[in-house]
Amino acid sequence: MAPPLSAATFIDALRAEGLDVVEVGDWADHNRNHKGPWGPVHGVMIHHTVTRGSAATVALCRDGRTGLPGPLCHGVITKDGRVHLVGYGRANHAGLGDGDVLQAVIAERGLPVDNEASTDGNRYFYGFECENLGDGQDPWPAAQLLAIERVAAAICRRHGWSERSVIGHLEWQPGKVDPRGFTMASMRERIAKRLGIKPQTTPLPTPSKPVVDLSQLAAAARSNPKAKGRPVTYAGTRIVEAALVDAGLLAKVRLDGHFGEDTVTAYAKWQRSKAGGSFTGDAADGIPGKTSLVNLGRRYGFDVKE
């Protein structure tokens, strides 16, 4: 078990790795520790922000947004390669993810495909948000990629971890696609070289997009919350719930695998939204249909099976 580095040791490690570090306000005391434990730590998680503009990005990651208070990470890596420290301690960055992935990170072995959202990642991971639109087209400048490499290596070096303790959000939580625009396999190879470790020769599995079965999901939605007997549910409900949480339409506490009344209400809001298809009236009933579900999948990284 590894206790988190002290704030002083953390920033010292980053600077020792040659990084340009910017301290933002009271970053060392800005956290969500009152909401749950911070540590033991087991790895580093990389994200992209889906934002444009360094100042606005740093402010968002420090302060958070409606329904998701800041800090949203420990450091923001902007396109110029600077690392802006916005918080230290528990941060709202990882969310619920796959416990099997956590065990693989702890053991520093190849990652399984993430297919569950049941383990609190905010407790166990250092988190870095990287300024990028996340559309696969926004470029990743060399200075920014180098900073990501150095940040991860700095923390791994202090903890005695290998590059396999560094993962992307897409490898942790079903439905996530970040970081998009480079592969985590290539980044881990860079980190290994910086650490002076020969890269692992065992190939890591390429995470596939999760698939949501439309007919099963619709059955789960129709059976809840007023049907008598045991509600219909299956793995796809967690994927869709995670997407609705990410969209700010569903509270994280409702991410339980059951397409209950709150999930139906949240899905109806998605159907009515422009991104969901701009449905109105009875068409926005909270029961997933092909158009709205495909739109949700495109945005949050899962495929749809009819």
Rank of each mutant, 00 (worst) to 15 (best):
H42F: 12
I191C: 04
V151H: 05
A218M: 08
L14E: 13
L249E: 14
G260T: 06
T237D: 14
G99D: 09
N92Y: 10
D303K: 12
P199L: 11
I197V: 13
R180P: 00
R158T: 15
W38C: 11
S292C: 09
G75R: 03
G53L: 12
R188D: 00
R194M: 14
L111C: 04
A153P: 08
V177N: 07
Y126W: 12
D303N: 11
E131Q: 15
K305D: 14
A153K: 01
S208C: 08
D20R: 13
K290D: 13
D303H: 05
Y267H: 03
A107P: 00
L85M: 03
L249W: 10
G110T: 15
A268K: 09
G236W: 06
G196M: 05
E17R: 13
V232W: 09
G64H: 03
L19C: 04
L244Q: 12
A147D: 12
P210T: 11
I197P: 00
D282A: 15
G136N: 07
V294G: 01
C73Y: 03
F279M: 15
R123Q: 15
G175V: 02
F125Q: 08
D178K: 03
D285P: 02
P207E: 09
S292Y: 02
T263R: 12
I287Q: 06
T206E: 15
V253K: 15
L72K: 01
I167S: 00
S162R: 10
R238M: 12
T265Q: 15
R254D: 15
A153N: 05
D246R: 13
D135W: 01
P231A: 10
A117S: 14
R82L: 02
D120A: 13
L250K: 08
N132S: 15
G257R: 10
R180G: 00
C61I: 02
G160F: 11
C73H: 01
A28L: 07
V44W: 05
L14Q: 11
E241L: 04
A242C: 08
S54Y: 01
G260F: 05
L111F: 08
K269S: 12
G81P: 06
G301Y: 02
R109V: 15
T237Q: 11
G67T: 08
R90M: 14
P225V: 06
W140K: 04
I77C: 10
R65M: 14
I148G: 01
G110E: 15
G289T: 06
E149S: 10
G121Q: 07
V245R: 06
A220M: 13
G87F: 09
P141K: 08
F128N: 02
G87Y: 08
W140G: 05
T202N: 09
D285Y: 06
K193N: 11
I148A: 03
G276P: 01
A56D: 11
K198S: 14
L145T: 05
H159E: 12
